[in-house]
Design a protein around this nucleic acid. Structure first.
Lengths: 354, 354
DNA sequence: ATAGTTCGGGCATACGAATGCGCAACGTTC
DNA sequence: GAACGTTGCGCATTCGTATGCCCGAACTAT
């Protein structure tokens, strides 16, 4: 009495089992056809019928069930300990956008993990380890307690923009960028250059400052000709005042990022100073708005598109290595266990009116 | 001979079953304790032992398995048909950042669906319907073919920033924003005002233009005193030329967004024109960089934080309604089926030097 | 003493797809 | 005509959690 075919069974979700029921086939056969399982023989006719029925019913394989079985979700995460995404954080937008693009190329999805709620490290770590993501990009300080937890976990991780010892890292060449900026200013006759530093504990930010100091010393400038000023937030007014009051006032300012460079430029303008006539100002990052708004800005541009793409490749390599090991733990593996350490070149963008 | 307790079983993943095995309990009991299942009695001692062992082993419930069982992933998606996230798209950054924050408040995760690969509508739709997300935010044209598919699907959807008929929509009051800008200019004596329109098929963008036209007419301006110029991309140079060559040159320009307003302002500056003396320029959006860089910018600011928060509430309501219906399909339901239609106020940000 | 109640927990199954293995039916070979 | 290979498909289990239902033991009430 059991009806087997053509019973509409309206409410039933469209699953492989349902398709099988309609065609008098087993779920496994349907699954093999729909997922193109290799090495399994199916008659052309059956295959056609299954594919047609699936299309007719609008069948979509359930990603969650598939993930559970395959122990792989095809989702990668992004975590940042610094800042939240909004219209002022062009840097994050650029990085996340790049990751999004790279993920798309590899048919992965990107899950953003917020740090808004003020969750504890443990909470965040638990969320990251709940099996939802196959790998993770992090942008944070190497002393972030989360980093330690991640390092001892088995989750593939790639650090982005800020290197983290012991983890694969993909960064831009901050040191070279600063060297280029210093050289640019030096060539134009500047011998006393101030540096604006945000007092933020990010490795890349410290590299920029330290390179500035080293490079100025290497060129023969005395320490007082290369003052480093720590600025609060992006407000450069106090720094500008300090600069102008110095015994030997710097003729140029190297800012740790574009935003502070712009703030400085706008402030100078309001004071009637000309840029770069009265004061040369250079920034760092080369993002869109600043350069667009103030065309005389001299800055360093990193190729974030490429950086994120490389980071994705590195992460995928790790993911494959990890899942490979699960099935073949005997192969000699010391080779691929080494974290990647990639540093991509940057280029100087001259000002339009120099 | 079977060993039951204290066997390390090193390789075994930490699951509820594994914990049960160690303590001589069943998986279900462990699960009930760890998920705080209501209405089930467990001795205090057992509970303590389970919790301790779980903590000791670093147990994390597998989110994928849980999602499969509960038919709910606690992930919401975001799809945009317009633009990609990068440093130039401050608007998207603001919206996504807002959603991220709102998602975090409700303990949801946000999954971004890219449109880079140039996937077909069907591909995207399939991805969205694979059970990975519980709900979706969309920012796209109402004629996007995807919208039709979504409308006939059972996925909870909320349109953001651009309203879509038949779907819950949360937008800012574009019309009122334009009215405020026109009033602002009109009060300052401007009687001939040009409007810069991007020729983009987004509802909100059209509303801005149409409101401008209506409002100027309402105030008694003749059509030639309210010319609408369609600009290519953000390059305002041709428009500026056209404006200055008009028989009755507009004394003010209302730009559809901040970016074009800024381009216009910078161009004017380069020509030696003063703003707003020689030409008044107003924009729309009130995002960070433009206002920061050019402080005389007059613009309209929407509260994206609030808009995204409201959108989240609306989406969650839909999600709960849908899942509620599954279990109680008999309750009269016409009431909650109505899509939300929320329009939040905007405010005018005056220029610093007006 | 017996029925009823609470306590503490296990059994079995569902969620939906993937997959190792088995197995009947048919065809081929010598 | 018996051994063997191939074709085409199903059975049963797995992934890890949630949950409806059941059940023995202890305890209470009459």
């Amino acid at each position: 009495m059991r009806s087997t075919k053509s019973v509409p069974s309206e409410g039933a979700a469209v699953t492989a089992k349902e398709i099988g029921r309609r065609l008098g086939l087993s779920q496994s056969t349907v699954s093999r056809i729909l997922s193109n399982a290799p090495g399994h023989r199916v008659s052309e006719d059956t295959r056609r019928r299954v594919l047609e029925t699936a299309a007719g019913l609008g069948y979509r394989p359930n990603a969650v069930a598939r993930s559970l079985r395959q122990r792989r979700t095809n989702i990668v995460g992004f975590y940042t300990g610094y800042g939240t995404l909004d219209s002022r954080n062009a840097f994050l937008a650029e990085v996340i956008g790049g990751l999004l693009r790279a993920a798309d190329v590899h048919r992965l999805d990107l899950l953003l993990h917020g740090v808004y709620r003020g969750a504890s490290t443990e909470d965040i770590f638990n969320e990251l380890m709940d099996g939802r993501i196959d790998g993770l990009f992090v942008h944070t300080n190497s002393r972030d307690p989360l980093v330690a937890r991640l390092r001892e976990s088995s989750l593939p991780v790639v650090a982005i923009a800020d290197p983290i010892p012991g983890l694969s890292s993909v960064v831009c060449d901050d040191a070279d960028g600063i060297r280029q900026l210093v050289a640019y200013l030096w060539e134009r006759g500047h011998r006393c250059i101030a540096y604006l530093h945000p007092g933020m504990e990010l490795t890349s930010v410290n590299i920029r400052r330290d390179t500035f100091i080293d490079e100025m010393a290497r060129l023969g400038a005395a320490p007082e000709q290369a003052p480093v000023l720590t600025i609060p937030m992006e407000d450069t007014r106090p720094a500008l005042r300090a600069i102008r009051e110095r015994r030997e006032p710097p003729t140029a300012v190297c800012c740790w990022n574009d935003l502070s460079a712009l703030d400085l430029i706008v402030t100078c303008r309001e004071l009637g100073m000309s840029i770069p006539g009265d004061l040369a100002v250079v920034g760092f990052d080369g993002l869109f708005y600043p350069k667009r708004m103030v065309r005389e800005l001299v800055t360093i541009r990193a190729n974030w598109q490429r950086i994120t793409a490389e980071a994705m490749v590195s992460l995928i390599r790790q993911m494959e290595y990890r899942s490979g090991r699960r099935h073949a733990p005997t192969t000699d593996d010391e080779s691929s266990e080494e974290p990647d350490w990639i540093c991509l070149p940057v280029s100087l963008i001259p000002g339009d009116t120099v």
